[in-house]
Design a binder for these strands. Structure first.
Length: 258
DNA sequence: TTTGATGT
């Protein structure tokens, strides 16, 4: 949208303020609970904390670089109706997020990054999950197929291990096709990094990268190390996580699921 | 479909 210098300066100052205030408020910033920090921040990234997740907004692609949050066993609830929720622009994105018109008749789903199903413990959290800053264009058969299967798997892990830290988002490349007036990029791939650091066992982590198309392949075909994912997206997802964890796929995780 | 969506 607006590319005037002063606008960027204002946006930057707001973003910094939001970011630093977020460091000291509640669970929206995962590092308070994990000691592992939120993903590495590039100078032009706008970091936006919401009540139950934190995101980095990419204005060029009109969607998040990443969305990060902790999901606990206690949060696995089904308290509110998602059918009452509306997708809406994120009021906290200084440059304006994508909007409903961008997706209408595009042929693509409004695909959640932080799933609505992970945010159903709080009406506010669920409502915020419908902000377009948490949405990316996804093929329907991807969103309701392999991607949903991965979301279900992560919820299973939250139940099993008590707590998981999740960083998820689109792989934003140059020259992607786009939809809508705001030119929302259509990602070719999506990723999800999952860290289990519940204090009861050594930290373990694994990542998935899956193409934005229909797939019937087992999820383990898409498992890679955190290191590999970080190289792919040029981002340090878990700045304080030990390299020995980042460069192996946690065996306990992979053994349980195909 | 208990989910995750579209469209009016």
């Amino acid at each position: 949208m607006g590319k005037i210098f002063s606008l960027f300066l204002t946006a930057g100052i707001i973003a910094l303020g939001v970011y630093f205030s977020g460091l000291f408020t509640g669970k929206s910033v995962p590092q308070n609970l994990s000691g592992l920090e939120i993903p590495h921040i590039r100078s032009n990234d706008v970091i936006i904390p919401h009540s139950a997740y934190t995101l980095s907004y990419n204005e060029e692609h009109e969607q998040a670089n990443w969305v990060a949050y902790e999901l606990t066993r206690e949060e696995l609830a089904d308290n509110f109706s998602r059918n009452k929720m509306r997708f809406k622009p994120d009021p906290d994105v200084p440059t304006g997020s994508a909007e409903d018109d961008d997706y209408r008749n595009s042929g693509y789903d409004r695909g959640h990054l932080a799933p609505a199903g992970d945010m159903n413990f709080s009406e506010q959290a669920l409502r915020e999950s419908f902000y377009f800053s948490n949405i990316s264009p996804q093929q329907k058969r991807f969103n309701s197929g392999i991607w949903k299967k991965l979301e279900d798997l992560v919820r299973d892990w939250a139940q099993t291990y008590g707590s998981v830290f999740i960083v998820t988002g689109p792989v934003l490349e140059k020259n992607l096709t786009y939809i809508g007036r705001n030119r929302v990029s259509v990602p070719r791939y999506f990723y999800k990094a999952v860290l289990i650091n519940n204090g009861k066992q050594p930290p373990g982590a694994v990542a998935f990268v899956i193409e934005n198309i229909s797939s019937k392949a087992p999820l383990r075909n898409y498992m890679i190390t955190i290191d590999s994912l970080e190289s792919l997206i040029s981002l340090d997802l878990f700045p304080k996580l030990d390299d020995s964890v980042e460069n192996r796929i946690e065996s306990k995780i992979s053994l349980n699921y195909w």
